[in-house]
Every structure is written in structure tokens, then in C-alpha cells.
């Protein structure tokens, strides 16, 4: 799509990226340079920032860390030990109280969440809300919120297939897990006062 000439308007990030990578025609290049040569410090600053950012990314060729080396860092914490569970706590199975796949949902809410699936689980007064959004046929994003005391001390684990994903909730109980494999998922929540296990879910 052809973009209007720069003229006096401020440069956008796309124009700056194209300029830095020699992806614009000579006329457009001249417009950009005339604009930058003027008194627009805002665009010069943006040019610096975007240029520095893309340069830092392009020059970053640090290879992935070999797993054998990572293991040595994990050893110092004794990570090979089983996950600690607080003494005296037993697993409790949470109750599914809402599933947008089967429960009726108001039209306005449906519009708001699009194709995402909403689920709500509860144990006593503690609640776990999940929003499951498929990214592709094989992967999904799970966002959620733990509504319980000390939400930031809750860890959420999702096991699907041979993989597992882990997230820590923030101060408001929110968390997000991305690129989770679709399929049957086993979800557990480790809180300071309660260990939750959700019924098996097909996600």
C-alpha cells in the first residue's frame, strides 16, 4: 500500500524502519531526510531509538545455552528435587462452575471475548478464571486470574502432551501462558494455603 509523502507530518515507525533498511524510493528518502534535517527533534529521537533497537537485535547472535550447562545452574538450587508442597496440604479438586462452551453466554460478552473459551473453577470461596484462546490448531494462549488471598504466591502449571508450562500469578492474581499445546490438559495451582487440581480438560 502506498503511503502519503512525509512532508511536514511526523515520521512513523514503519517509515523509519524502511528508511534505515533502504526500503524506500529516493523521493521518499529525500522527504524523510528533509524532515529529519528540520527542527523535529521528536522524529530524530524516534530514529535513534528504533535504529538502536533494530541494531541491537540484529547484532544479537548469542546462541542458546546448552542444556548441560543449564543443568549446572539448576543444581545449585537443588532443582532436581521434587516440587515442594507445603506440609499438611492435600490436593483438592476444583469444581467447574462455568464453561462458555456449554453454558449460555450473553451476546455482548460473546462479542467481547470473540472465540476465546471462558472457564471458571472454584473451591470454597477461591476462584480460578481461565480464558483459552487458540493461536493455531496446535497452540493456544491461556490467560487467567486467581481470586484468592495472596494471589502473587500462586503458581499455575499446565501439562499437555509431553510438555508442561508454568506461570506465577502477579499481585492481582493474573497470569498468562503462551504457545501451550492444544489437547487434553492437566492444570494444577499451587497456593500457599491450598493445592488445586482441575478436572481433566480438553482444550
Amino acid at each position: 500500500m502506498k503511503r502519503p509523502p512525509v512532508g511536514r507530518r511526523h515520521l512513523d515507525v514503519r517509515t523509519i524502519l524502511d528508511y534505515l533498511e533502504d526500503r524506500i524510493e529516493s523521493n521518499a528518502r529525500r522527504d524523510v531526510e528533509e524532515h529529519l534535517a528540520g527542527s523535529c527533534s521528536r522524529c530524530r529521537e524516534l530514529l535513534h531509538e528504533v535504529g538502536r533497537l533494530s541494531s541491537a537485535m540484529r547484532s544479537d547472535r548469542t546462541p542458546p545455552v546448552p542444556s548441560a550447562i543449564r543443568e549446572r545452574a539448576l543444581e545449585v538450587f537443588g532443582v532436581r528435587a521434587q516440587t515442594r508442597t507445603a506440609p499438611g496440604l492435600a490436593w483438592q479438586v476444583a469444581r467447574l462452575v462455568f464453561d462458555s462452551l456449554v453454558d449460555p453466554i450473553p451476546q455482548a460478552a460473546r462479542r467481547a471475548i470473540g472465540d476465546a473459551r471462558w472457564l471458571r473453577f472454584a473451591i470454597d470461596s477461591d476462584v480460578l478464571e481461565l480464558e483459552v484462546e487458540h493461536e493455531t490448531d496446535h497452540s493456544m494462549t491461556i490467560r487467567g486470574c486467581v481470586l484468592a488471598s495472596d494471589p502473587a504466591l500462586h503458581r499455575i502449571e499446565v501439562a499437555s502432551g509431553d510438555d508442561s508450562w508454568i506461570a506465577m500469578a502477579d499481585a492481582e492474581g493474573r497470569f498468562s501462558l503462551e504457545q501451550v499445546s492444544t489437547g487434553e490438559a492437566s492444570i494444577t495451582v499451587h497456593g500457599p494455603a491450598r493445592l488445586w487440581r482441575l478436572p481433566p480438560l480438553q482444550l
Binding site: 502473587a152 506461570a167 498468562s176 501462558l177
Partner: peptide, 25 residues
């Protein structure tokens, strides 16, 4: 089993408190 770590908070911002939460844990 391979473990994947996740963005702890909203995936739209770089939460400066994420490391803090991990350190606490």
C-alpha cells in the same frame, strides 16, 4: 518432560516486577 516458563503478567508489557516475583518465590 520439558518445562516452559511464561510471561508472568500481562503479555503486552514488560513487567518490571516479574523478576522480583520470581526472586520472592
Amino acid at each position: 518432560m520439558a518445562w516452559h516458563t511464561a510471561a508472568v503478567t500481562s503479555p503486552r508489557t514488560l513487567d518490571p516486577a516479574e523478576d522480583s516475583r520470581l526472586v520472592e518465590a
